[in-house]
Design a protein around this nucleic acid. Sequence first.
DNA 1: CTGAAAGCGCTAACAC
DNA 2: GTGTTAGCGCTTTCAG
Lengths: 344, 344
Amino acid sequence: MIPVFMPKKVNLKTISNHLNLSPGTVSRVLNGKAKEFRISQETVALVLSYVKKIGYSPNLIAKGLRASKTFTIGLIIPDISNPFFAIMARNIEKAASKENYSILLADSQEDEDREQQQLRNMISRKVDGIIAAPVGASFQHFLEIRNQGIPLVFVDRYFNDIDIPYVSSDNYYGAFEATKYLVNNCHQKIVLIKGNEATEPAKERKRGYMDALIQEGIAIDEIGVTGNDEFSIENGYQSTKKILSTSMKPTAIFALSNLIGLGVLKAVKEAGLKIPDDISLLIFDDQPYVPFLDPPITTVKQDSEKIGMLAIEYILSKIDKEKVDLESKLIPTSLIIRDSVMKI
Amino acid sequence: MIPVFMPKKVNLKTISNHLNLSPGTVSRVLNGKAKEFRISQETVALVLSYVKKIGYSPNLIAKGLRASKTFTIGLIIPDISNPFFAIMARNIEKAASKENYSILLADSQEDEDREQQQLRNMISRKVDGIIAAPVGASFQHFLEIRNQGIPLVFVDRYFNDIDIPYVSSDNYYGAFEATKYLVNNCHQKIVLIKGNEATEPAKERKRGYMDALIQEGIAIDEIGVTGNDEFSIENGYQSTKKILSTSMKPTAIFALSNLIGLGVLKAVKEAGLKIPDDISLLIFDDQPYVPFLDPPITTVKQDSEKIGMLAIEYILSKIDKEKVDLESKLIPTSLIIRDSVMKI
DNA sequence: CTGAAAGCGCTAACAC
DNA sequence: GTGTTAGCGCTTTCAG
């Protein structure tokens, strides 16, 4: 049985009563406006010491109601357990807390209905700004956010058709460069395992892949692109199994996400094949564990830290001074060459 | 230049004015209390349709102030980019949102000062409950939370000296079983690379390791345990380098976290050694990528999903009905045998 | 230098 | 069946 110590409630009124002051005065002292209002040294000292003694902490809900400002940023992402988003989240929280903002976290689980509901929730909670990696194809609900005048920025995923700023990787060039690299190693039959093609990054990666092939004069047959709409291990696994069971015999696989890549590894292993001897593999999105895979995989590394930083930076300055407008930014990727691509 | 559409403000008062009703009535309708107050069908229909038309969303800040309840759960963890915590967070958010609670995320970055500040912040924000994986040795600030009457539960890390409930892995038995397994494979010189030893899990894992050795009649020399206080890649890397440069020649390494394990792999690889031929490795904490490492590593798997679920379940029921008390729970781990331990 | 009071948006107690 | 009003805790005019 925990003995719950029920302290009598403490707020500006009880404090001011106790000290024979008015709530206003206490409030002013606490907000560092003592000089401005030329409040006496004694009063200040009195308030400060008492407040410290009883361990008063201001009610931010009341403050928020009064000021129409909550010092809260909403963060909506499709999967916090994906390291790519987790690292982003970490940096966002870090930068936000430095400016006394807190993060309201929502995991949409790649579900558009959830996302909509979460957005509504954020509006109701009067967040000062929103950072989102949208799930998919529709964006109506995001337009409403903008109409409400709430600062909004997309990360990773975004929409080309509307003028809401975003920070994302340079997916097109990342995939282009990677595909070129494969071709330069004499690969002609390169299969792409895509993820959710409703998303701009997936589209862009695919476009980069295509353009590279075209530029190299390689014919793109329709079986060049496979996979369902999930950035998941399962998608990589099933797709690879399918690929390996056909007569197509690709020499290389280009997996469009780290999870898809793990699925490929699983299927290849099960088939008793060796990377890169039997088939080469290149994965979009690097992770801390990738150097230790069997074999270490060549990847397109995204700077999720930087993406997160720029997004929060934009939101905070947008909150501060309404006028700021962000040019959407594409952050360069880098090709990390390891041992999963064989020169044929 | 984005044309910002500035909608005139909409709240219960403006709505009720517009409909020639009182704020009270509108509030009652919106909160499903129409029957209870026997409000006419027309009025209900009127309110509902209008509210829908203008897309009104209630101000949860005002609601929270009024009700002294915010439908917010604070989540404080040392590193959201660690998959172990990220998976936990995901499940917590999922369960919370089902009951209309939102998650306020704080990443303490293993920094006790940050943690304290974040706790204060959560108090100020009037969260309805807190789930925390505390950083370290001190717990005074957590006692204050309890004194404030805010439901609190620890996950992963906890304190034995205070009666605040926790949900964690059965770290002792997990490590015990793992060490036994090493010994059964004829390893005698097993080095433990610990993490933050101020934490109960690290202590328990070490204790499990020790007890297993003792039970097997193996002498524990002081060099049996090494590593600094960080659950990090760097710690695993540096510690392993040190180990390999001594004359001790352990036959096996037991790494107390997934990140430490990656560091071990790096150092072993750099030294030109092979796992498990030259040295065996066992890691505490499994991850999706572990089966694909070189070689696949034998691990102690923790059920972070279940830990998260139980924690949020407890907090929610504690919020509901004050009386509930949680027996602290240790969730069983499982030893996943792969190819990183050689039978000597 | 400090106090009094209004009001942020909402709900519940009390009217009728 | 519905309206009125007080008050959650805070800040900020306006007074003096």
